[in-house]
Nucleic acid binder design. Sequence first.
DNA 1: ATAAATTTTTAGACAAGACTAAAAATATTT
DNA 2: AAATATTTTTAGTCTTGTCTAAAAATTTAT
Lengths: 224, 224
Amino acid sequence: MPHYLFVMFTLSEENYLKAIFHLEAISGKGISTNAIARKLDTKASSVTDMIKKLAEKKVLVYKKYQGVSLTDSGRQIAIGVIRKHRLWEVFLVEKLNFSWDEVHDVAEQLEHIKSPKLINELDAFLGFPKMDPHGDPIPDKNGNFHKIEKKLLSTLEENQSGVCVGVNDSSSEFLKYLDRYDISLGKKIQVISKEPFDGSITILINKKEMSISQKISNNIYIQS
Amino acid sequence: MPHYLFVMFTLSEENYLKAIFHLEAISGKGISTNAIARKLDTKASSVTDMIKKLAEKKVLVYKKYQGVSLTDSGRQIAIGVIRKHRLWEVFLVEKLNFSWDEVHDVAEQLEHIKSPKLINELDAFLGFPKMDPHGDPIPDKNGNFHKIEKKLLSTLEENQSGVCVGVNDSSSEFLKYLDRYDISLGKKIQVISKEPFDGSITILINKKEMSISQKISNNIYIQS
DNA sequence: ATAAATTTTTAGACAAGACTAAAAATATTT
DNA sequence: AAATATTTTTAGTCTTGTCTAAAAATTTAT
């Protein structure tokens, strides 16, 4: 087996790799020092130090003043951390009665536990889930993401329906709103009518009709 | 609520408190610097540094050259870590197909996850187990240990029987021996005959008879 | 195209937690 | 009760990951 598989990464290093992975997913290549600092709530100078170290470990490519991009092995490590994070979130919600807005902090800790057996057994125990409680895809053991065709609830036409598979905004406030109205993953939602004036829509969920604003429907993902 | 409940402890500090707790359980009060260093596989000078810090945080009492002993709050923290360690071990063995000798390293990591809700929900999910896979008692939410009357298998007379509730020796070799002969927690064991010459005994387990040496029977705990 | 603003890097410092080597205190022998 | 051995502490160093302040590079504006 190639040697690099045995290089260990610290908690901090893993967090940097994960942050850079997420930033690349949004803004393409060449992630800036400042963007990483903002994401990790740290200082740009600390980021410079860390990316130099990570570049030496060959998990990212770095040229002074040019930002960074992950190498394949860096990406695999980031995906591994994300896999752990999301599997633990499923565990917390499905087995330990956590609500959507309570899982994140604990999953941030659990994602750094090092044991391949642990995570693969957990995966099996949970029935190989394809997405986490926020609807984000869970990469499989080999780091492959299962593509989900999801669209925003706001894009549905009248009388169309689908299943809630995720959220766009993961803020605590929004998740609490969803809890309050019992909108959760897997719930069937049908659009009854759309109001052109303010973009609000009336939906059928939990056998009851309710009206939601465009801001809400723009933050809920639906799979038809 | 009193302020000291919110003092946070690092991974290292927690490991020191746990080690000292275990040492106090064996050798009473006044745990020596060297004993701690041996237990944690570190140097005596490092221990001195750390116990000074812990004494400042009021979790142990330290006088130069006199060793240390835990305060009540230090003991509570140690018990909390032990509770987490043992509950995770139960989870790993019962839900994730870990064997006795595989759990320790992973539980050493999991025991430092900080979330009261996590551990109390895990406790409930596992059905409030009273002991871990090695037969050691799991303290409850308030830090109280449930006393178990356990005796060594070697102390049973002919025709007496009991349930396996733990082991004395937790070495990997011994646990593998137990796995090989399918001797595990909760198994009923009946003593068929005892051999005075070498102390070996014949037992009935898993509906089969087998002979085990005194060394083995001295390392298995039984509850009648 | 030069000035101003922003971003990034460097230099130096600090806290946590560990280490080595040597000094100080305590224990054990003789 | 000295002498010797052991344990414990101190002093100083190192690494990791962070920080501040200032210098260097790049980008934006005039």
